[in-house]
């Protein structure tokens, strides 16, 4: 009988083996060089072989006990969205909108309820800290709010 956890372990062992084989392939592709003058592909090739062998080993290894907490898919998805949104927005619409999106999405990922006022406070607080610390002090090239966004809102061009 294969339990569900064991199945995911076995699948992941195959992922590892595939990764190892990919390294072997790219090592050869990058040129291994000669033993006296190893090329850029030498180390990837070696590591590929090692990883493949280890992957096969894991396939046959007895698995330890697992955590019984179910995976937090919702949290993972929303955190991914939060970080993705920040990355997509920070250079296009500016630091403040990006921060707001990040805070709201992260708050949604949490199961605890958050009051709108607390949420707003966190957003404003982080915007201020972010601006002072990273834009004013460390000179990151962020605009608080992109001028394009303002003109888009006001309808002027």
């Amino acid at each position: 009988m294969i339990r569900k956890n064991d199945l995911s372990e076995v699948l992941f062992a195959f992922v590892i083996i595939a990764f190892g084989l990919f390294l072997v392939y790219s090592g050869i592709d990058l040129s291994i060089g000669k033993m006296s003058r190893i090329g850029p592909g030498f180390l990837p090739l070696c590591l590929g072989v090692i990883i493949t062998v280890l992957g096969i080993g894991i396939l046959f290894e007895r698995q330890e006990k697992h955590l019984d907490i179910p995976p937090n898919i919702r949290g993972l998805a929303l955190i991914t969205l939060a970080i993705g949104a920040f990355a997509a927005l920070v250079e296009t619409t500016g630091l403040f909108p990006a921060t707001a999106a990040l805070v709201i999405l992260t708050a949604l990922a949490n199961h605890e309820r958050i009051r709108p006022l607390t949420l707003l406070g966190t957003i404003i607080g982080l915007c201020v800290v972010g601006y002072l610390l990273f834009v004013a002090a460390l000179q990151l090239p962020f605009k608080p709010i992109s001028p394009d966004l303002i003109s888009w809102f006001t309808g002027t061009n």
Binding site: I83, L102, V103, A107, E112, T122
Partner: peptide
């Protein structure tokens, strides 16, 4: 509370 801490850390 975690609900404030986590957004801050992710930021």
């Amino acid at each position: 509370p975690a609900r404030i801490l986590y957004p801050v850390v992710i930021f």
